[in-house]
């Protein structure tokens, strides 16, 4: 049989009914264009992340050159004299975040155990809904509440009580102002609680029922079952949830900025005003007058970016491992 060439073939294969004859080669061209456009957009996601890193390094270059590693340990932040050190903000960020974790983690794990193991079925959906609602309220609204409700309450009730009972400790010294490290840590705790609680609940729910049944059948109480059968298997996932919460706390900006007092000082007292990496950027970035000032602020942002990037990768590795392990365990 004599074979016609490809062009003839295409014509020969065009369907007899004339209404779609026009489509000729368009179909494949369309496929190629669409595939290309989709790939380009997918590349856009990677490019946005990489671009963020590159742009922030570029923006902070003059500060990096000027201050070098000393930037991290320098305690003076004086825009007027163009002296920039990150130490007060690193201190403020770490302390406020750890304070938030210390308050939020026990409560969040309690909430997760309640939602995953104890709550009656009818309560689980509304309770989960409330937890999600907490996560949906904008940060600036928490900040507003912090300014007008939380800070005055701390100033008038909590801080005097703490000072009376534990005033001999350096952490609870100084005047009660409300605004300060304690308020910052507390509002962060409130904001990261839903994240930690809902991720922890998810990993607990993923623990196979057979483990619980095994413990119960041996005569364990409900809490012993949680202790013996659930928590050990959910541990890695809960640690991941805590790291995710820590990542949020480190980067959380508005609410902290509004209640932490914004002073670039390192103080032992939790009552004293402080500042975080995010809060100083929020307060000063739009008004930074000199190039070096802007570069120093950008370098603070770069540090924040790098730390949260590493934390997120770490947390995802931990949570991901649990997720992957769970079906295997179920299968066996």
């Amino acid at each position: 049989m004599q074979r016609p060439n490809a062009l003839d073939l295409r014509r020969a294969l065009t369907p007899s009914a004339s209404f779609w004859a026009w489509t000729g080669t368009e179909a494949n061209l369309g496929d190629r264009l669409f595939h290309g456009a989709a790939a380009l957009c997918a590349f856009g996601v990677v490019a946005a992340l990489a671009g963020m890193g590159v742009e922030m390094i570029r923006a902070s270059l003059s500060s990096i050159e000027r201050f070098g590693l000393g930037f991290v340990t320098e305690v003076t932040w004086d825009p007027v004299r163009e002296l920039f050190g990150a130490a007060p903000f690193i201190f403020g960020t770490i302390v406020s975040s750890l304070l938030a974790l210390a308050i939020a983690v026990p409560v969040a794990v309690g909430v997760a155990i309640f939602l995953a193991e104890l709550a009656p079925a009818w309560l689980r959906t509304p309770a989960s809904f409330v937890v999600e609602l907490l996560a949906a309220i904008p940060s600036v609204v928490y900040g507003l509440w912090g300014v007008f409700v939380l800070a005055p309450w701390l100033r008038d009730t909590v801080q005097p009580a703490l000072a009376a009972a534990l005033g001999f400790l350096p952490f609870f010294g100084g005047p009660a102002r409300g605004f300060g490290m304690l308020a910052g840590g507390l509002i962060l705790a409130i904001m990261i609680l839903p994240t930690i609680a809902s991720v922890s609940r998810d990993v607990m729910v993923a623990v196979p029922t057979s483990y619980r049944e095994a413990a119960l059948a041996l005569g364990a109480t409900r809490f012993e079952t949680v202790q013996v059968a659930v928590l050990p298997h959910a541990k890695a996932g809960i640690v991941g949830a805590v790291i995710l919460g820590l990542g949020r706390a480190l980067g959380e900006t508005m609410a902290v900025t509004m209640v932490i007092g914004n002073r670039a000082e390192i103080s032992a007292s939790l009552f004293a005003p402080a500042a975080t990496l995010a809060s100083v950027i929020a307060n000063e970035y739009a008004e930074a007058t000199s190039d070096l000032y802007l570069a120093a602020l950008s370098e603070l942002g770069l540090m924040l970016f790098a730390v949260t990037l590493i934390l997120n990768i770490g947390a995802r590795l931990l949570v991901g491992k649990v997720g992957r392990a769970a079906p295997g365990v179920r299968g066996g």
Binding site: L49, M52, E55, M56, A59, L244, G247, R248, L250, G251, E252, T253, A278, I281, A282, Y285, L297, S298, G301, L304, F305, T308, L309, L311, N312, A315
Partner: peptide, 9 residues
Amino acid sequence: GIPSIAVGI
């Protein structure tokens, strides 16, 4: 998980 303020910068 990147802080929104970093996106702002």
